[in-house]
Design a protein around this nucleic acid. Structure first.
Lengths: 354, 354
DNA sequence: AACGCTTGCTAGTTCGGTTTAGCACGAGCG
DNA sequence: CGCTCGTGCTAAACCGAACTAGCAAGCGTT
């Protein structure tokens, strides 16, 4: 369609110099190879005038790198949160001059390999492998061929890749602390617990949140008043768990393992004619969009998906640039990067005066 | 890092033929140029043995196209729905052998131009320009240089680009019909109306939904019992609107302009001690995730984001392949493509027996 | 006049493929 | 015996840039 791109040759012709001269000038090496100021100016003017933009494909072929990243996740769309992760990654990448290919596997390993191949074929400089499920998994061997970062994937292997994860353990501590500091003693867990091994979900987040919670309760001489280990963290389950609790009396505080459980708990509490936070305090994790829409606003600890995506992209680019420099220093960033889960303080916790 | 890629030259050497021969064989033109069966086999074996994969960058440079699409939206992450749109596009693209660059502008036009440039630099074969806001806008001129499709963007111009939109008008008709057919007569609109011009949102969806609704009501000799034109379609607004209604009596049916408004309406109805659908029926649009989580499940007309993304990708690829063939036939797919909004039938509508 | 040095610029190779034009050889034909 | 034709394959140009090696002109020296 339409007029083809302006090439370096066009610029060179317009400026009356050789292609190599134009290349040198535009890549900033003009002074270094002693191109006269006037010629340099002519080249730059010509480029400007013609609206020259280097063909990245050609540059990629010649230089062997493409300023391109691959982002592969098992589910782009399943949650708003996945979108945030991608967004963070894309933005960080752009700030560093990279574009990103996005692929989605739906958990299919064959597809994952195909996507990786398709990306390597296109000479991506690095790869971010993301999951929405945060659990251990085997990694495709190809990942060692290129800088790579794991995003929201905890691996068991002794892998030296950088790994970006939410600080679930700390969030567990913070959530428990929020209730304890508000004066609560009668704290019921919905989603996992009461024991440290009562965790049914595959999600390793559950285990860590629980550990953090129990730690803080223990430090305050407390234990969960009850716990309900649930496999599917969805509103109906939260509803059921809270309803069961309400049969036996009014719990002082509910610590829900995610916002959907909390949403169900809200429904149960409110159907019982009780008020949040007047009668029951609720704290949760994730900061899904419903957290803000519930009545009253739900105090929750946000999964920092955006920040995680950004960190992951920054890490791959760090590694890429490090490799490019070719120094002997060890690759940067390997190891686990925990991104804090910030508290979204809303109106579901009552301050008791004890 | 690690062993470099296998090139065509490696394969040719291994098979004992010239590079051009290997190329011909692997691109399937072996028979056409009379390469002996035995040579062909040797080349294929060698390729197989060495694990050869063509370097897409090189191919892109030579052939001038890259089997790559650009997807630019103003907000990847703002909603789960945007993710669905991207997912649909990515999947359809993959099925056709394309990878996709994803970019996000946040509504910033300068950024949009930069992203387009970065994508054109990388020789994308086509572009999908998407918006979450569905309203008219000016388009960057660059879009005429390459096959392009507008996704969820309605343009005023006489543009010949294909445009993919949800069938809002029809959904408005369907939503009204759902209530009318259930025997409702006392239908209150929350979000826009009651008159056809009572539409405050910039979203053109509002206007079309409203038009569809009024059409069907009119055809049944009805008019909205009331309407509330709201700018921000969020739960608190829905709550307020429904509460105001409830002050004056019990409305038979609420037709909310999106699920968030419906969520707010639920809260109000339930706080008034009334039941959905026992006392009040509710119908809505979007099928956001909360629609399924609400008690009872909300009957709503789904924004078909996934299908829209898929259609958009298919359309660009159609155009690309059409251009490639270089026939004189007119470009395919130009014009508006309306994707149906399917009904998600849940439990918020009561069947009256009149 | 011959030589070396600096200055200013360019020819030519390379990246990894695709594609066209055509070479070399043997068989068949008159 | 010379010519044409078919078969099987390859050399070489090309895509658009990056980059190395080095040429030519001008100037000062001896």
């Amino acid at each position: 369609m339409a007029n083809k791109r302006v090439t370096l040759a066009d610029v060179a012709a317009e400026a009356g110099v050789a292609v190599s001269t134009a290349s040198l000038v535009l890549s900033g090496r003009g002074a270094a190879v002693r191109i006269s100021t006037s010629s340099q100016q002519r080249v730059r003017d010509a480029a400007q005038r013609l609206g020259y933009r280097p063909n990245a494909v050609s540059v990629g072929l010649r230089k062997g790198h493409t300023s391109t990243l691959g982002f592969i996740s098992d589910s782009v769309a399943s949650s708003r949160l996945a979108g945030e992760m991608i967004k963070g990654a894309i933005e960080a990448a752009r700030d560093r001059g990279f574009m990103v290919f996005v692929g989605e596997t739906g958990g299919n390993t064959t597809l994952e390999r195909q996507l990786l191949d398709a990306m390597f074929d296109r000479q991506v400089d690095g790869v971010i492998l993301a999951s929405m499920l945060t659990h251990g998994r085997d990694l495709p061997a190809e990942l060692t061929r290129t800088p790579a970062v794991l995003l929201n994937i905890s691996t068991d292997g002794d892998l030296t890749l950088p790994v970006v994860l939410p600080a679930e353990h700390q969030a567990g501590r913070d959530a428990a602390a929020a209730l304890v500091e508000a004066g609560h003693r009668d704290i019921h867990l919905i989603g996992a617990g009461p024991g440290p091994d009562d965790v049914r979900t595959i999600s390793s987040a559950a285990r860590q949140r629980l550990a953090g919670i129990l730690e803080v309760l223990g430090e305050n001489g407390l234990a969960p008043a009850s716990g309900r280990d649930i496999n599917q963290w969805l509103p109906p389950e939260g509803y059921r768990a809270a309803s069961a609790l309400l049969e036996k009396g009014v719990p002082e505080a509910l610590l829900c393992f995610n916002d959907r459980l909390a949403m169900g708990a809200y429904q149960a509490v409110q159907e019982h004619g009780l008020s949040i936070p007047g009668d029951v305090s609720v704290v949760s994790f994730d900061d899904a969009s419903i957290a803000a829409w519930l009545h009253p606003g739900l105090t929750t600890f946000a999964l920092p998906h955006r920040a995680m995506g950004k960190r992951a992209a920054d890490l791959v680019v760090d590694v890429i640039e490090h490799d490019r420099r070719g120094t002997d220093q060890p690759a940067p960033g390997s190891g686990v990067h925990l991104i804090p889960m910030p508290k979204r303080d809303r109106d579901s916790v009552r301050q008791l005066d004890r």
